[in-house]
């Protein structure tokens, strides 16, 4: 370091300046945290102020064509339960492979690509589900009208959810101590029973946390549903028909010129954000002991 000061002054000045820089940078770093929390606070505040008033009991019973969100809540519940039904078994089996067997090159490759899959933009997944139906329709397997339907929505959401479940399941199962596996195997229990009856239950809380996080991710997705499930003014009409969802309602009501519908969009956002925050906090609480033991 070169400093243009006389020597006796230099020591005093330099230390003062170093301490000031230290304080200034700490303060600047703290300010970064504060700046990041402003949007979060503003979103929560606006959703509460503008949305709470819109959440009258009738909003939950009316369908979206009458300005309510009843069918949207129903649609989101249907979409995420059917998606979980597909994604949880497939994702957990993949997670089992990655944590129990996938130590070689094949396992490494699968892990890498599963990771890459969690990062595909969700809109691309929506295009994929829609195009898959179109491609199958060309082969004559399905009707092209299925492209805008509950089914294609579930295909899209599952494509997003499976890799997330797989990675979280792998992490949860990796935390199960090897001694647990070895004791079960030493008792003569076959490998698959050891994994299904001993390892899976031991990693249970982690699996549930992961499943919840994956569910939260899927429940807030809008872009893929816009391209597949599309939205509908009515309640559920079958797997081959379009279906409404909470995020899609927020999107259409937000863009509407009616202030009443805008307000309902804020109300629906309030519900969605509260669900997300609850899941997020619940998963943190559930995973806390794991962090302490690391």
């Amino acid at each position: 370091m070169k400093l243009p000061f006389a020597l006796p002054k230099l020591k005093f000045n330099r230390n003062m300046r170093r301490r000031l820089t230290d304080r200034a940078m700490s303060l600047a770093a703290l300010m970064c945290v504060v700046i990041a929390l402003v949007p979060l606070g503003s979103i929560l505040f606006e959703a509460l102020v503008r949305g709470a008033g819109a959440l009258r009991p009738t909003v939950f019973t009316l369908d979206t064509r009458d300005g309510g969100i009843g069918n949207a809540i129903q649609g989101t519940l249907i979409l995420i339960s059917l998606t979980s039904l597909v994604s949880l078994p497939v994702g957990i089996l993949t997670g089992i492979y990655l944590s129990e067997f996938g130590k070689g090159r094949l396992g490494g490759g699968i892990r890498f690509f599963v990771d890459v899959m969690t990062q595909i933009p969700s809109i691309v997944v929506g295009i994929f589900a829609y195009s898959l139906i179109l491609a199958l329709a060309v082969l004559g397997v399905v009707s092209p009208r299925l492209a805008f339907s509950t089914t294609s929505g579930i295909i899209a959401l599952s494509t997003i959810m499976i890799p997330v479940v797989a990675r979280t399941a792998e992490e949860a199962l990796r935390l199960v101590p090897n001694s647990t596996r070895e004791s079960a195997l030493a008792l003569g229990i076959p490998e698959h029973r050891t994994i299904l009856r001993v390892v899976l239950p031991t990693g249970g809380s982690g699996l549930i946390t992961g499943a919840l996080l994956a569910l939260a991710r899927v429940a807030g997705e809008t872009a893929p549903l816009l391209l597949t499930a599309f939205g509908s003014g009515f309640g559920f009409q079958g797997l081959n028909q379009p279906i409404e969802s909470l995020p899609h309602t927020i999107y259409t009501f937000a863009l509407d010129s009616s202030t009443g519908l805008n307000q309902t969009a804020w109300g629906a956002s309030l519900i969605l954000v509260l669900i997300m925050l609850l899941i997020s906090i619940a998963s943190r609480v559930a995973s806390r002991p794991r962090f302490a033991s690391r």
Binding site: T94, F101, G102, I110, F128, L132, A166, E191
Partner: peptide
Amino acid sequence: GRSYFEVLTAIVSIAVVALLGVIAVVLFIV
């Protein structure tokens, strides 16, 4: 050299990853 259970989970995992290829192919076709 492997148990049936390992083969089963391996097949599922490979199918999941193969989805990435399916996505690319389907997008190309359409």
